[in-house]
């Protein structure tokens, strides 16, 4: 048995964070950590994120846990899911120690990662693992 992988041309990642410095850092990490074509769309709030979802085909969302006007991902993820986004949503946070992070799947998130853990390897792994969900597997 053998398999063939048909690659998607561009992976579009929506990054939501209230600190614009994070955009610069994320671009740098993605650029250096991913081989295939990627597009990083950065917004500072959920309203903007929802607009992007209306306009673009997003492969994956990376969501800061504590956005300025929202408490945490438990309220922000459901908002994003309400826009019929079925792709992977990952929570990035300075700290993932609070207990409620154990229940991230219950609120519609697919994974969580601390910001201090984010480096190019981690970004590459996440994209391989989650953003390539639409890769097609075919039998010979």
């Amino acid at each position: 048995m053998s398999s063939a992988i048909e690659e998607v041309e561009t992976i579009t990642i929506l990054f939501v964070d209230d600190n614009p410095d994070e955009f610069v850092l994320m671009e740098w990490l993605v650029k250096g950590g991913v081989d295939q074509n990627t597009e990083l769309v950065c917004v500072t709030d959920i309203e903007s994120a929802c607009k992007v979802l209306d306009e673009k085909d997003i492969s994956m969302i990376l969501l800061d846990n504590k956005l300025h006007l929202n408490d945490d991902f438990r309220t922000s993820v459901p908002v994003l899911r309400s826009k019929a986004f079925t792709g992977p949503i990952g929570i990035v946070s300075s700290s993932i120690e609070p207990e409620y992070f154990q229940e991230f799947e219950q609120y519609g998130a697919d994974f969580r990662i601390g910001k201090n853990e984010l480096d190019r390897n981690a970004i590459g792994f996440i994209i391989d693992e989650f953003a390539k969900k639409d890769t097609k597997l075919s039998d010979d």
Binding site: N19, D21, L25, W28, K66, S94, S95, E97, K115, N116
Partner: peptide
């Protein structure tokens, strides 16, 4: 862990850049 670690991380990453 959150508010102080964040600027520290920024300093580290921007330094790497």
């Amino acid at each position: 862990s959150h508010d102080l670690r964040s600027p520290l991380r920024h300093i580290r990453l921007f330094g790497e850049m």
